[in-house]
Write a protein that binds this DNA or RNA. Sequence first.
DNA 1: AAACAGGAACCAC
DNA 2: GTGGTTCCTGTT
Length: 283
Amino acid sequence: MFETIFTDIKPFDLEIIAESGQAFRWNRYKDGYIGVIDSFVIKAKQEAGNLRITFNGGQEHVDYIRNYFGLDKDYKDIESRLMEFEELIPAVSYCSGNRILSQDPWETTISFIISANNSIGNIKNTIELLCKFYGNPIEIKGVTYYTFPTPETLSNLTEEDLKSTRCGYRAKYIIRTAKMIGEGKVNLSNLKKLPTDAARRELIKLPGVGPKVSDCILLYSLGKYDAFPIDVWIKRAMNSIYFKGKKVSLEKMRNFARERYKDLAGFAQQYLFYYIRNNYNKE
DNA sequence: AAACAGGAACCAC
DNA sequence: GTGGTTCCTGTT
């Protein structure tokens, strides 16, 4: 196991990032977190302004890890620009150190297809089972971890095969999306180069991917920071901040947020989500 | 044990 | 293009 320490990373809060609902494979481990990211098993521990990473890679993968955690981004600047919107001050100050991870587009696509009409605990369970049954094993000190399965593997499964993962009616979406990706009908690695809206139109071609799931894929794996995913929590936040008592469609809400926050929309969403989830009903 | 939480598809209009 | 209904699993 190789160890590397990133210093002077503030604002950065590992716990908030790992519990923020953007990634589903991080779990508490001792006084930090452990996760399987691509073919790496990563132990992460925050010590004040330092992030200690232990993983089954080497010096040549350090930049990859740095990019995954968004350590090259100037979050001091992002947070202060967000705070220029008066209504975001409570959310940003509540979870300063929140960050958007750069995840693998394929894994993110399937993960958020599973997330539709589903809660975080269930989503994590299903993804763990999916990896355990159909991913590749990685053995570390006698413990076996599993990678996320490939498009080829998932495209050859039947709905029956997926029953054991408890993904419910989403099974057919997973298989059909895997087929489309495998056949190159939608090429995820090309989407980074496209503008946000064009990439989104491509993503929505995938079965099980609609407005919200596409925005999550754009934001969490394609670097489209102007995407603004609206789930029930963001809807609650937006209603209580901007649309008290009014009926506003999700599409209008999304346009409003993207217009107002522009290239910061995705970041605004990230802080609002964590804030409202932990403060809703606390009057 | 019934109610609830959580987005996309599909079908009306 | 907007609105209502259905789809599963897990928790209370």
